[in-house]
Design a protein around this nucleic acid. Sequence first.
DNA 1: AACGTTTCCAACCGCCTCGTA
DNA 2: ATACGAGGCGGTTGGAAACGT
Length: 292
Amino acid sequence: MRKPDPSAGKSIGGGATKLRKGLWSPEEDDKLMNYMLNNGQGCWSDVARNAGLLRCGKSCRLRWINYLRPDLKRGAFSPQEEELIIHLHSILGNRWSQIAARLPGRTDNEIKNFWNSTIKKRLKNSTVPSPNTSDSSSSEAKDHQAIVGTRGFVSMQEQGFVPMFMQSTALNRAGTGDASPMFHQHGMNMMFGSNGYFNIPVGSSMAHVGVTDRFYGENGVFGGAEMGIDYVPPLESISIEEQNPKTENTYVNNKITENMTGAGNFWVGEDGEWDLEDLMKDVSSFPFDFSS
DNA sequence: AACGTTTCCAACCGCCTCGTA
DNA sequence: ATACGAGGCGGTTGGAAACGT
């Protein structure tokens, strides 16, 4: 939160009107709300001007999207929303806007704040850091590198080949056959085998999946062994070769590619690219009702 | 009660993409 | 080709509120 700029609204040299910054006053909110309800969204700089606001268009847009929009849902996140956020983050990483698009009434900013304050902390405390955290500068990430130490595994993350819920200590433990507490908690024994997969006992055989049954019930709606999901693909449409053709990680990548190809069920589109829509089909079937 | 610390979150910043001139 | 503005996004900041001592 920021203090309203004390010099707000005053003209400065050259006759230019200084734009306001900081917190929005109730009057400003009223102006913006009334304008938006009467005129709808247009060019944001016009909105700011026509609504009589001494704000930049960007600021108006942000205020509307994050606070004034009538369809915003208020209040704490439900456990269902929380789980969906965690799940989506495991797929999408820090693509908050894409995550928000799948949570009606929630904003990217809200979800981002929620993640950074609540979920990140919780995952850290449970010794299973956030999956697919792209915050490479964070202390968590540094801890992660320090803990894992196995260049190949870190590289997989860097490449976007991050099995869901597989990171840092989970990886390390899995590598020695010791599943992380989180997996124990949910009654799963997972091992990171030499074939580059998470191996999960299913009946009498092992399934190679990149997900746990953490969220998806028993029907395989998302991530049961039947799903045949091996790795969470990078969402950018970048082929493996394009992503990092000549690095020290090539061996790891090649190995992954080989395994995935062998399995015949990795998520690469017809033109060799990852298909976000296919990926998100599974999310759309997520068995929660957020309409309330 | 007073003070220090931590948490939460609104808002800003900088970068990127896209459309247009 | 390129310059420019608008919109969008993720990362970060910083201050109020809550909590602890």
